[in-house]
């Protein structure tokens, strides 16, 4: 189980690197979306490993409410671009 978590941490490094390096705004958005999902799944696995369902509930809540903030941000970015192009 710990091995799984270590591999997950390593994989989580990829979108972090992409978010840090990517100069293109949509690449950054994609990287952040990826980080959000991966972190929530990691929380679930940590809860299984420590056998503490309280932590798991947090992961479930994060997954259930979804990442509405990113969708809102995407809409704002599109609107901003439309305004800038006028």
């Amino acid at each position: 189980m710990t091995a799984f978590l270590v591999i997950m941490l390593l994989i989580l490094g990829i979108p972090l690197y992409a978010a840090w390096k990517g100069e293109h705004i949509w690449s950054k958005m994609l990287a952040f979306a990826s980080i959000a999902t991966k972190a929530a799944i990691m929380i679930l696995l940590v809860s299984v490993q420590r056998d503490d369902w309280m932590i798991g509930i947090v992961g479930i809540i994060i997954l259930s409410v979804g990442n509405g903030a990113l969708m809102l941000l995407a809409q704002i970015l599109r609107r901003l671009r439309d305004v800038a192009n006028l």
Binding site: W26, M29, L30, A33, T37, L44, W53, G56, I57, G59, I60, L63, S64, G66, N67, L70, M71, A74, Q75, L77, R78, R81
Partner: peptide, 29 residues
């Protein structure tokens, strides 16, 4: 803990797909 896990499974598929659609729609052009 299957009820909550199934709920999370369904909402994971739903939210990720909708996010993909919104990001695709917003980043085009």
């Amino acid at each position: 803990e299957w009820p909550l896990l199934v709920l999370a499974l369904i909402s994971l598929a739903l939210w990720n797909t909708i996010l993909g659609y919104v990001l695709a729609y917003c980043s085009q052009g």
